[in-house]
């Protein structure tokens, strides 16, 4: 059901964890629906200097979180906000159709983190 690429990334995610003294974190999802994602970011010169995730959920949820981190690291906050779930899925390669909703959540968590960060800066 999952491609080799997704399985390989699932075995060795690169961005798992939590940034100590993060500039902002965003969390979405709930246990009832089966997915929770938390993204923490470190911002420097308006760019995402570092990003890590923690995810409760299926393989697609974990792998899409990891790919999102990879996609946005080094980008400006505005660029990062504009990364879509479609971009994440494209990076993941093929995912089962019923799993596409999982990769929306990682992006929602990131947007929440950026929004909170801006609020803090204002």
């Amino acid at each position: 059901m999952y491609t080799e690429q997704v399985t390989e990334r699932f075995k060795k995610p690169r961005f798992m964890g939590e940034i100590q003294e993060a500039d902002s974190t965003g969390e979405v999802g709930n246990v009832r629906c089966g997915d929770i994602m938390r993204v923490s970011i470190k911002v420097k010169d308006d760019r995402i200097a570092d990003i890590k995730f923690k995810t409760y959920g299926c393989v697609a949820a974990i792998v899409s979180s990891d790919y999102l981190c990879e996609l946005v690291k080094g980008k400006t906050l505005e660029e990062a906000e504009n990364v879509t779930s479609k971009d994440v899925i494209e990076r993941m390669g093929e995912v089962p159709a019923i799993k596409t909703h999982c990769s929306v959540l990682a992006q929602d968590a990131l947007r929440k983190a950026i929004k909170d960060y801006r609020k803090k800066c204002d």
Partner: peptide, 14 residues
Amino acid sequence: RFIEGESIIMNLDT
């Protein structure tokens, strides 16, 4: 607790 079954079975499958 704290983890999801599909991830567990896929990890065991590897």
